[in-house]
Design a protein around this nucleic acid. Structure first.
Length: 363
DNA sequence: AAACGCCGCAACCGCCGAGGT
DNA sequence: AACCTCGGCGGTTGCGGCGTT
């Protein structure tokens, strides 16, 4: 019944492969081809488990494996594919010729994942870290909606460990002011243009796409709050909010700052037809030929469930993401690119995190 | 120069689905 | 139908190299 065991694990070698073992394995496979891993070690004269031989071949010895650092295009593809496929490394590797799932997995865990985290992007969902990003919309909501069910104090308490201390202090101050003198505070807010502007512009969405509007908004605040003690704090809040969105607004495709504050959670950059279809990910914005066309992902569901509000465009290729075509043919990072350049390249994912914020706390 | 810590990557581990017996 | 192995996959580990103190 059944097959014989794959191999007797007793007496089989483990650990790093020697050049002699590699040579034996290569020679055998060149003669007989890969496969039948069960009998291969014995036939090839290797004291290894068949599984170990298969891994050594598929991950290292295969002649079509591309060695060396990942290019911009490859990294771009990995990010795109991961946003669609999740940790399906083999599926990602299948779309990156010459790269193994193990290699991609390692590269993701050691480079891309850390960079995304550093830039405030959740590497699992590919969405911006809401705990870092969304305070601006929280504040605007709390300030402009007196009947809001949002309890700012509770919120501040709950997020105390996560937020930038400066923002946290402002939020706390605003909360106390709101409680202490809520009538006057809200009256002043409602009477001035601050809230009107926020409402008209939907506050944060406008910030990312039209920073000048936010600058105007910031200028309006002192004029409309000079009679209250909240003015300095609103100014500070506005400034901090502005700082937090500058990173977004510096690039036209950085749309995900909008979605978190829009009530309908529909990315402004996605039209209705795309939103209605789950397979909208691989848009024509992809500039990388290794990235499959839209239809190839039919059947895949977004991995960022719960983050449908997140604009996929922001993780897909953009003109900024792709390097200049003139340079893209030799964009291997080890030779011509540095981590700084990659930081620049990945700035499309970046929103400003204050230097004082220890990102390690979020890892 | 030695000790220490960090990082990257090759390799292993354990699980699962498919398929053979 | 039940049992078993194979092949594949994702997660994890451990070692060697490198940089810092």
């Amino acid at each position: 019944m059944g097959r014989a065991p794959c191999c007797d694990k007793n007496g089989l070698k483990k650990g790093p492969w020697t050049p002699e073992e590699d040579h034996k394995l290569i020679t055998y496979i060149q003669l007989h081809g890969p496969g039948n891993w069960r009998s291969l070690p014995k036939d090839a004269g290797l004291q290894r488990c068949g599984k170990s031989c298969r891994l050594r071949w598929t991950n290292y010895l295969r002649p079509d494996i591309k060695r060396g650092r990942f290019s911009f295009e490859e990294e771009e593809s990995i990010i795109q594919l991961h946003s669609i496929l999740g940790n399906k490394w083999s599926a990602i590797a299948a779309r990156l010729p010459g790269r193994t799932d193990n290699e991609i997995k390692n590269y993701w865990n050691t480079h891309i994942r850390k960079r995304l985290l550093r830039n405030g992007i959740d590497p699992v969902t590919h969405a911006p870290r809401l705990d870092l990003l969304d305070l601006s919309s929280i504040l605007s909501s709390a300030l402009c909606n007196p009947s809001s069910l949002l309890n700012l104090s509770t919120l501040v308490g709950n997020t105390q460990a996560l937020l930038n201390p400066d923002l946290l202090r402002l939020a706390t101050t605003l909360s106390s002011l709101k409680q202490e003198n809520s009538d006057l505070f809200l009256q002043q807010l409602q009477e001035n243009q601050f809230c009107n502007s926020l409402l008209q512009n939907q506050a944060v969405p406008a910030l990312s796409s039209q920073p000048s509007q936010f600058e105007n908004l910031a200028q309006q605040v002192p004029a409309c709050t000079t009679t209250t003690s909240t003015a300095p704090f609103l100014n500070q809040t506005t400034q901090l909010m502005q700082e937090n969105v500058e990173g977004f607004s510096s690039h036209p495709t950085s749309t995900f700052s909008c979605q978190n504050s829009q009530e309908n959670f529909v990315p402004s950059s996605l039209n209705d037809s795309l939103v209605s279809q789950p397979n909208f990910y691989c848009s024509s914005t992809s500039t990388n030929p290794t990235v499959p066309a839209l239809g190839e992902f039919s059947g895949f569901q977004p991995v960022n469930n719960g983050y449908q509000n997140f604009s996929i465009d922001s993780v897909l290729s953009t003109p900024l993401m792709s390097p200049d075509p003139l340079n893209s043919s030799s964009t291997h990072v080890n030779s011509s690119s540095t981590e700084d350049e990659r930081e620049c390249y990945s700035s499309f994912l970046k929103f400003e995190i204050p230097e004082s914020l220890d990102i390690d706390d979020f890892l």
